[in-house]
Simulated assay, not measured.
Amino acid sequence: METGFNVRYFKDAERLLRFAMLLTLLIAGISKFYSHGNFHDYYLSQFTRTTLRLQLPGAIYNIYLHLIPYIEVLLALALLLSKYRRYVIIAWVLYFISLETGHYILEEFATVNGIIPYILLGAITYVLPAHQSLIRRD
Rank of each mutant, 00 (worst) to 15 (best):
residue 84 Y to Q: 14
residue 7 V to F: 10
residue 101 T to N: 11
residue 112 V to E: 10
residue 72 E to N: 05
residue 3 T to L: 14
residue 124 I to W: 00
residue 135 I to T: 13
residue 60 I to K: 08
residue 133 S to F: 02
residue 37 G to M: 01
residue 83 K to R: 14
residue 10 F to Y: 10
residue 80 L to H: 04
residue 30 I to Y: 01
residue 10 F to I: 03
residue 16 L to I: 15
residue 119 I to L: 09
residue 53 R to P: 06
residue 40 H to A: 08
residue 126 Y to K: 00
residue 78 A to M: 15
residue 9 Y to N: 14
residue 1 M to G: 14
residue 31 S to L: 11
residue 24 T to P: 00
residue 29 G to I: 00
residue 79 L to C: 10
residue 87 Y to P: 07
residue 67 L to F: 10
residue 41 D to S: 15
residue 124 I to E: 01
residue 51 T to V: 14
residue 39 F to L: 05
residue 107 E to S: 11
residue 128 L to D: 01
residue 112 V to K: 11
residue 13 A to Q: 06
residue 129 P to F: 00
residue 55 Q to D: 06
residue 133 S to A: 04
residue 78 A to V: 09
residue 35 S to E: 06
residue 135 I to P: 05
residue 110 A to Q: 13
residue 32 K to D: 01
residue 65 L to Q: 12
residue 88 V to G: 02
residue 19 F to T: 14
residue 55 Q to K: 09
residue 93 V to N: 07
residue 51 T to S: 15
residue 59 A to K: 10
residue 122 G to F: 03
residue 68 I to F: 00
residue 109 F to V: 04
residue 92 W to Q: 06
residue 71 I to M: 09
residue 61 Y to C: 04
residue 135 I to D: 10
residue 135 I to V: 15
residue 76 A to K: 02
residue 106 L to S: 07
residue 54 L to M: 09
residue 41 D to F: 11
residue 4 G to C: 01
residue 94 L to K: 02
residue 124 I to N: 01
residue 106 L to Y: 05
residue 23 L to F: 15
residue 95 Y to R: 03
residue 133 S to Q: 03
residue 8 R to C: 04
residue 95 Y to C: 07
residue 130 A to F: 02
residue 13 A to R: 07
residue 28 A to Y: 00
residue 29 G to N: 00
residue 48 T to S: 13
residue 108 E to I: 06
residue 88 V to T: 12
residue 95 Y to H: 12
residue 44 L to S: 03
residue 52 L to I: 09
residue 64 Y to L: 15
residue 118 Y to A: 05
residue 131 H to V: 04
residue 62 N to G: 10
residue 124 I to P: 00
residue 51 T to M: 11
residue 105 I to C: 05
residue 61 Y to G: 04
residue 19 F to V: 15
residue 113 N to M: 13
residue 97 I to K: 00
residue 56 L to F: 13
residue 103 H to D: 04
residue 127 V to N: 01
residue 36 H to N: 15
